[in-house]
Computed example of a mutant assay.
Amino acid sequence: MKLLLATRNRKKLAELERILAEHTDVELLGLDDVPEYPEAPETALTFEGNAVAKARDGVRYTGLPCVADDSGIAVDALNGMPGVFSARWSGRHGDDQANVDLMLAQIGDVGDEHRGGAFVCAAALVFPDGTEHVVRGEARGRIIREPKGSNGFGYDPVFVPDGFDVTTAQMSAEQKDAISHRGKAFRLLAKLV
């Protein structure tokens, strides 16, 4: 079966390919592998709302079953923000360094004991017959003051998951997949494919 992942993010595509390979035999395609279609902006105020909208669009324009996710970091001291705005927190979509720098500046005076947060991922699977599934995965941890590590992307260099002494950017792909928000959500979806 062919399955579309509604993203152009090659790292996210590789992550889902690794996870799905453990659970099912599907051919995973990204947006660069199908004819281009108009992508609607992420306007929902929840991770779930954005994920479902992107997956519905993928099915509508390609006719393929589609997985889409919306994920980000929810910082306790920022009342759950950047949340759905994680990828564009600095005002420039996808500028990881600017997003991390701004978030760190915003909690710069917050004590270490109050720097908790979570990576959150809502993932939607929509089939051409209209069947929809939405799941959520979370990984709790803390935000450190200086980036460490070069693996991963986004906020990985400043996030230390609960029970670990390293950031998700210091973990191997397999270690991160085993505990990550996206790994948890995608493993739940893999059971539904």
Results as ranks from 00 to 15, higher is better:
141 G>N: 09
107 I>S: 05
109 D>L: 12
80 G>L: 03
88 R>V: 00
91 G>E: 01
81 M>P: 00
128 P>Q: 12
105 A>H: 09
117 G>N: 04
152 G>H: 04
114 H>I: 00
85 F>H: 15
131 T>R: 14
134 V>R: 01
98 A>M: 08
108 G>P: 06
140 R>E: 11
128 P>K: 10
93 H>T: 15
109 D>T: 14
134 V>G: 00
81 M>I: 04
91 G>R: 00
142 R>C: 07
82 P>I: 04
109 D>A: 13
80 G>Y: 01
94 G>K: 11
100 V>K: 11
150 S>D: 13
106 Q>K: 13
145 R>C: 11
81 M>Q: 14
102 L>P: 07
149 G>H: 06
129 D>G: 05
126 V>E: 01
105 A>F: 09
144 I>Y: 03
151 N>C: 15
128 P>W: 14
127 F>S: 08
126 V>H: 02
140 R>I: 05
90 S>M: 04
146 E>P: 15
85 F>C: 09
108 G>S: 08
109 D>M: 13
95 D>N: 07
148 K>I: 01
118 A>P: 00
123 A>L: 13
105 A>N: 11
110 V>Q: 05
89 W>N: 08
130 G>I: 07
149 G>R: 07
137 G>H: 12
93 H>S: 14
153 F>P: 03
125 L>N: 07
151 N>R: 15
144 I>C: 07
126 V>P: 01
102 L>T: 08
143 I>E: 09
104 L>C: 05
86 S>D: 01
132 E>H: 03
144 I>Q: 07
113 E>R: 11
128 P>V: 10
151 N>D: 15
98 A>S: 11
145 R>W: 12
107 I>T: 04
113 E>V: 09
149 G>V: 13
85 F>W: 12
143 I>G: 03
130 G>Q: 03
122 A>N: 01
152 G>R: 04
127 F>I: 05
117 G>E: 07
